[in-house]
Every structure is written in structure tokens, then in C-alpha cells.
Design a protein around this nucleic acid. Sequence first.
DNA 1: TAAAAATACTCCATAGGTATTTTAT
DNA 2: ATAAAATACCTATGGAGTATTTTTA
Lengths: 88, 88
Amino acid sequence: MEIKDLRYFVAAYEAQGFARACVALNTVQSNVSLRIKELEDVLGVSLFVRHSRGIRPTAKGDVLYLYAKRVLELMDETHQAMSPEKAA
Amino acid sequence: MEIKDLRYFVAAYEAQGFARACVALNTVQSNVSLRIKELEDVLGVSLFVRHSRGIRPTAKGDVLYLYAKRVLELMDETHQAMSPEKAA
DNA sequence: TAAAAATACTCCATAGGTATTTTAT
DNA sequence: ATAAAATACCTATGGAGTATTTTTA
């Protein structure tokens, strides 16, 4: 599980669909579909149920969303702490 | 900055050298050297000073180490929360 | 001068893009 | 019937390995 996977997941979760998520991710619907599928495969859990108007998170998906937001937030803090202007 | 980058960095930091770090990372010295260099490039900061017996962290390197450990720990928690046996 | 880091290269896996098909309301 | 997800395919970037050179205490 890499940071980029979590960004894909969060975008899909918040957009409630892969087609809508891909614009925020600067990519294409098929890639979002593939990456989420691979994330589900590697974790061994289902994160979304697919329907004809988009997606709905599973219970596991809801849990991952909370963790993913924390991870991404911490990564942002890390980037800020590493900014060259900022003294160590 | 991806999770794998942080793993490389932490291993190098703790091993105090790229050559020693690569065994824990199941890779090769040259890859550790390259990945750390790219991490420094993308962040725009120096993380280690190189010497003839290994590496010594810079002040920025010390700061990143603390953040990196937190990120990796949170990722471990995330994985555990996502384990299929565990109910959501 | 010796241990470790940097560099140059090759190779392959995988992420990204295009086009199309399938699914579900 | 239509909007969205899945699939198939191609391409290119970049991560991993090998071999060698450079650096520094």
C-alpha cells in the first residue's frame, strides 16, 4: 500500500465514483478502476460496492478512509517540515 | 515522497550507511544511494553527509526520521485495521 | 588504501493512456 | 438507454540489478 494508492482511494471515496474521481487525480477512469481493484486484491477486502451510478463504500472502506486521511495529513506535515526554507 | 522512500530512508538512517542498509531492504547499495539522492532532490534538502565509513544525518535528516517513523507506524496500523479477519 | 558512495548501463514491471465492452438502473 | 465500471491492449517511465569508478577518512 503506497501513498498514491491512498490518494486514489480517498478521491474515489469523496467523489463517490471512479469516473468523477479521475479528474482530481489527473488521470483516467480506467486507471482509477484498476488501482482500486489492485488495492482491494492486495488487502484482500472489498472497499466499494459498484453500482450503475457510481460506488458506495463498504464498512472496510469507511475504516480505510479514516486511516487514509490521517496518513495523508501526516505526509503533508512531513513535507512542510522538510521544506528547505524551514530550519531543521 | 512515497512509503517506499521512507523505508529506504529509515533503513539507511538506522544502519548509518547505504551499503549496510541494503540487506534489510532486500536490495543493492546502488539503489539505496539513488533513491536517497532522488528523495533529497525532490525535497530540495540534504538528508545525509557522506563520509568514507558511511553516512551521518543532517539536522533535516533527524527531523525526517521522526516523521518517517510515525508515518510507517500509522501505515502498520492501517494494514492491521484492513486485515480481512478483523471486522470493520 | 580500503570501505563505502556514486555513476553508467541494461532490463523488466508497472503505471498511465486509448478504445471498447459490460453492467446496472 | 445511459452513465459508469471493467477489460484489453499498448507505451513509456522508473525501479531493480550488475559492473565500475570515484570519494574520503
